[in-house]
Design a protein around this nucleic acid. Structure first.
Lengths: 344, 344
DNA sequence: GTGAAAGCGCTAACAC
DNA sequence: GTGTTAGCGCTTTCAC
């Protein structure tokens, strides 16, 4: 690897001058600049960012911690986030925790060791973990994405979509359409997102003066398999509601599959709604809720960038809650041509 | 940030001894070890990996370059790859090029600057780019994933799935079932994967003694939108084949949508196949081809890890081609219950 | 077993 | 404008 020293020798200037050229300091003469750039070109010199980081204590790297990148939620979030980071000159470490808390902790330790400038945390499994305290103490900025901590301490930031409102909107829409017997399939309640969606269900039902039947509430994994299982059980028990509200599109996909296999028609026999606006939900005309994934990635990254660049971050906006949008398709009764599939 | 020096002072030993403890060198006395570990604990010391990298010229970081992470191809590849990297103690930089060649080049430069230990390259847009030459010269190991370079130079590695064979298998299956009028929708030919799939179509048709009709071959983007457009055009031109073979599931999704909107039944009116085994293809009973994404990520990462650890890499296996597997569902005629949806 | 010290490649303060 | 030089925090060689 070519070093600055070699560039200095070849060009006949000192390392300080070379450094100045590299960093575009306006003090060097045109002549020096030209010669040094020529030497850089000829030698194929490339600054060693590691060495630079040593001096500056900045690495231009950030980390993003996710539960499981194969979950359709993440790709959009990550790509928009990465786009913003890129435009600010940052690289991003992808940290997939595989839903493993220990691994998440280890990842945070590793990221600290690598001296990342900041971290975006999307996992929802840890409540006020000691590991976040470490980050606070070390003054490494971090932003919670989608994961609403119980209480936001000073210098903590949160960007999310209103999970509670998402389900409320679904319930309100269904109630409007005359549905009364509503079933709710929910993800694990220890994940804040699903806890909130559950609350949204309760609140929505109450607001609409609808009765909540315990036998129609299922709580567990938010996977296709679970949705399939729930639907099978409903069929077996002959316990079919008018509409099944799923707290994730994956659950709805599972339900759809089970019903299709058994000749149950959607929405004629039973209506169905999902949540997350999976890019392939339109294939089965699934009504869903768009959780603004792109905006989530963008906004969280921008906040982090502001923090890293010491820009005064508006403390009023430490907590940003985006509004989810209903995406209505045929699976819950009518084709409203609102937010219809654009084949994206 | 706590430094080694502080740990040394607090424990009463020298930095060299502290370093020995950190690195688990077997030379230090038990007593020193205990005291130093205690000091580390109390101070909350964490080794500075950046400084370590300076000395060792190793960063324990690798980069993965992808075209577009929202493409369903990537999440599985990336997660299995990341899993392997993690198990070897490496962190991975995610580099999304947004299909932009310039950006890919810049990313490679950045990764070199950050002194990553190796790179996995999944983009297919550059033929023998000068930027790969840079990597070669700098002796930074890299592995091509899914992107078959025209010619593999020494110390270059490639892991992929046999794209040509994938389409051949589809054609053979369809021919077996009696289909003759076969249409082929292909992605951009400057991408090696689609070029190979195109070749597979030609070869497959020839092998089956089937006639290739130019009017049934469409080449362009491999997106849902394009599939939708192609199908609309077929309908308008009343130019409907017996079966539409798509070089990507996305294309097939678009075709499906257009046909559904127009009341065309699949497979009764026209059969349909995709390629990539999108995790949601089972929703519409789409036959497809599994391209072994998980294995791709795993194997490529393992090869890179071997390269990084100076293990002798079997030069015979410099080029690994996995065998694609048909996933047959109802969209091309029969329900064979082979590779049937497992709701994953 | 332990410590002193050199040096990885860079930045930045300071001298000229 | 340009050069000299002191470190950033660590690893490692070589004395002791």
């Amino acid at each position: 690897m070519v070093t600055m020293k070699q560039v200095a020798e070849k060009s006949g200037f000192s390392v300080a001058t070379v450094s100045a050229v590299i960093n575009n300091l306006p003090v060097v003469s045109e002549k020096a600049k030209v010669q040094i750039l020529k030497a850089i070109e000829e030698l194929g010199y490339r600054p060693n960012v590691v060495a630079r980081s040593m001096k500056t204590s900045k690495t231009s790297s950030i980390g993003i911690i996710v539960r499981d990148i194969t979950n359709p939620f993440y790709p959009k979030v990550i790509s928009s986030l990465e786009e913003v980071a890129w435009s600010y000159g940052y690289e991003v470490f992808l940290c997939n925790t595989e839903n493993n808390v220990e691994r998440e902790r280890k990842y945070i330790d590793n990221l600290i060791g690598k001296r990342v400038d900041g971290i975006i945390i999307t996992t929802a499994q840890l409540e006020r973990d000691e590991y976040y305290e470490k980050l606070r103490k070390l003054k490494i900025p971090y932003v919670f994405l989608n994961r609403k901590p119980e209480q936001l301490l000073e210098n903590e930031f949160f960007v999310g979509t209103d999970n509670c409102l998402a389900v409320e909107k679904v319930i309100a829409h269904l109630a409007n359409m005359g549905y009364k017997k509503i079933s709710f399939l929910c993800g694990q309640l220890h994940l804040s997102t699903f806890r909130e969606r559950y609350d949204g269900f309760l609140k929505g039902m109450k607001n609409q003066n609808l009765e909540i039947e315990q036998k129609w509430i299922c709580i567990g994994d938010y996977s296709q398999e679970k949705g399939y299982e729930y639907a099978q059980r409903m069929l077996k028990d002959k316990n079919i509601p008018e509409v099944i509200v799923c707290s994730s599109d994956l659950l709805a996909f599972g339900v759809y599959t089970a019903f299709k296999e058994n000749g149950i028609r959607i929405p004629e026999d039973v209506a169905l709604t999902g949540l997350d606006n999976n890019p392939f939900g339109h294939l089965i005309d699934l009504s869903s809720v768009d959780m603004q994934h792109k905006a989530l990635g963008e906004i969280s990254a921008k906040i982090l960038m502001e923090l890293l660049n010491q820009q005064p971050v508006n403390q009023q906006t430490r907590e940003i809650l985006l509004e989810p949008q209903l995406v209505l398709r045929k699976s819950c009764g009518v084709e409203l041509h609102v937010g219809r599939d654009k084949h994206e």
